[in-house]
Design a protein around this nucleic acid. Structure first.
Lengths: 203, 203, 203, 203
DNA sequence: ACATGCGGGACTGCCCGTTCAT
DNA sequence: ATGAACGGGCAGTCCCGCATGT
């Protein structure tokens, strides 16, 4: 037992943690493969457990629900650090936009493709769409906290929350647009929407 | 055979339709009462069915899922008609704000209290929060369609969608703020947020 | 109401009967198409009813169960008449074999293909396999009755029933053999099995 | 990890296994009692579960379907071992007959009565008749495998399958004869049918 | 007469809490 | 004491029979 519980973010070099991470990844990959082959609803937790050679109850120790496998998003922490690194003279909106572009551009093409597919999956499965709201609310809270930091206002300030909500809402609205699958580039789309947002409010 | 199929909204004078509406309401009330008394998760569909003196399968013929009972929102159509009635010279944002105030003000105190409770329920139950996203997306689509109508732009236009998303997002963000339960008035809160939105974007 | 209920087999020229036949066929075709497109279990009775533009309960007035659509076999009456037409000097077994070949040979290639596919469907769906037993028992009874007619013995005679059972059983056993899908010709297979049956008993 | 995986049939000394067997038997007995008292269709799985003091979902962990309770046949393995013990010089048919008699004679009168009743139940309930086909196919496959073993031919050989099918088919045909309930002895009946089978083929 | 709608039961799948085995 | 097995329990889907209304 390590003398001090390490803070959650540190990767962790303990043997335990690595084993855990490995199992987790095995579950993740098996599940994604099955979702891809058979569809989400058609894949049972039992099948995933069998594929990853663990018991069903172990599965639930790694992912609270089946939907959480897909909800997994490694981009949030990256986004936060990027946002904080933006020059102070930028407005929050501009900083958001810059961070967005920066994060998206660091993704490999394959990474983009995977995000894309993941997103399409979420869009098409009610259960996953549903699971996304908490994710979204979390996103708003996160952004509000960062904006609060930047501006010195409290995170519960109506203006701060409205800004965060509007930005996330606009992003979602554009992403959930029915006809973006042909559109090659999510980054361009989002960038345009965010840039135009102030003007859009005058429509 | 009825001589003319009546448009869906008309109350309907057929014996069948009235019975249906009555049963639906009975289910709704029974469910809400039970949710109030025992909590949402602690109430089974079977109990609701028993309380409404129907079978479980009949329940599912009226509400596709248990969550849909709570999702029921009669305000949307009212909002749409109010929004359309706004003078054309108002910007979409202003029209939205005016409609919002108008709709909220027509609600009785008791109606407001019920909405409030309903909202608190949704906030506290993961299952309901989850179910809300589709509702929200629907709201964005609805609003986008109306804005498109007002401005003559296509409903899929990025500006239009961004506007709709931002407005809904900001509203949600404010409503999901942790500390509004003490605040008596939702209307005031929302009004402030929407009014300040353009300025907020400059934070 | 017709003065005399016509015997079930007569095609019937009444307007009623023709309408009935037409609806029945419409149901049959819609169902088969859907089974083909989506699979049997994945097709609900409601979908079939919608596709045939009738109500669900009407469906059940034409087919007692969903499985009965597939169970429909128009070959039995043909087989009986062919069997009766066999020369009296043939043994029952020989007559059976001759009738079998005769009936199968009258089928068009397309008809054979359809029978083949139908059979594969039955094999692969538990529900259909299950539904088949009554069909089979019916077949045994039918055959026993015919053999009884031919031989002058009572249809309940143990020898008669054993013969009928053995013939049907052997046919089934061969048809349910795991590896016949590559084998182009069901007729050849069955013929060989029946011909060799007496010898097989000495194994 | 247990040092050696015990063969499935061995009773098993683990506490877990014994408990499982006990629960299974409790379900079986409760169900049979209820079927006897109220009829099969009139007995719900819920009642069985209540009677066995388990939950409905546990029931389905022990028996995949309600029908499988009745399908349970402990005679198959006994039959196989008896069949294998027959002297090699007997023909397969003769060996089958000898095994049949042997197995039936070891059954107590009460056991016979139970089998009888079980069979009558199956005959009278469509759902059970239906479930029986898979059982039958299994029986044919089993017998074919044994015959293959005895004769050195492949189990998929047409002669082998035809023989197995014919024997099972003849047995079924006789058992499903309408008027055997007065006939005290199933063994005698089956024996006669099997013995006469080769001659019957010449009818 | 005909369709619509409801009762109700079988069954599946998700998820959680407890118990057993190592 | 850690992890697997197992049971409980509930949501939800589909099939089918019967009552009811048009």
């Amino acid at each position: 037992v390590p003398p001090a519980q390490q803070s959650g973010d540190t990767p962790g070099t303990g043997l335990r943690e690595r084993r855990r991470a490995k199992v987790r990844q095995e579950i993740y990959r098996t599940a994604m493969r099955l979702f891809h082959e058979q569809g989400y609803d058609e894949t049972t937790v039992q099948q995933i457990a069998e594929g990853a050679v663990i018991s069903e109850s172990t599965f639930y120790r790694y992912f609270p629900t089946k939907a959480d496998i897909v909800m997994e998003d490694e981009l949030d922490p990256l986004f936060v650090s990027t946002f904080r690194a933006q020059p102070a003279e930028l407005s929050s909106l501009a900083a958001f936009r810059a961070s967005l572009l920066s994060v998206l551009s660091t993704m490999s093409d394959e990474g983009q493709a995977r995000q894309r597919e993941r997103f399409a999956l979420i869009l098409s499965v009610p259960d996953l769409r549903a699971a996304m709201l908490d994710q979204l609310i979390g996103g708003v809270d996160l952004l509000a906290a960062e904006v609060a930091l930047r501006t010195g206002r409290p995170a519960t300030d109506t203006h701060v929350r409205a800004l965060a909500g509007a930005v996330v809402g606009a992003s979602i609205a554009v992403m959930f647009s029915t006809d973006w699958q042909h559109d090659a580039n999510l980054a361009t789309l989002l960038d345009a929407a965010i840039t135009a947002l102030p003007d859009s409010l005058n429509l």
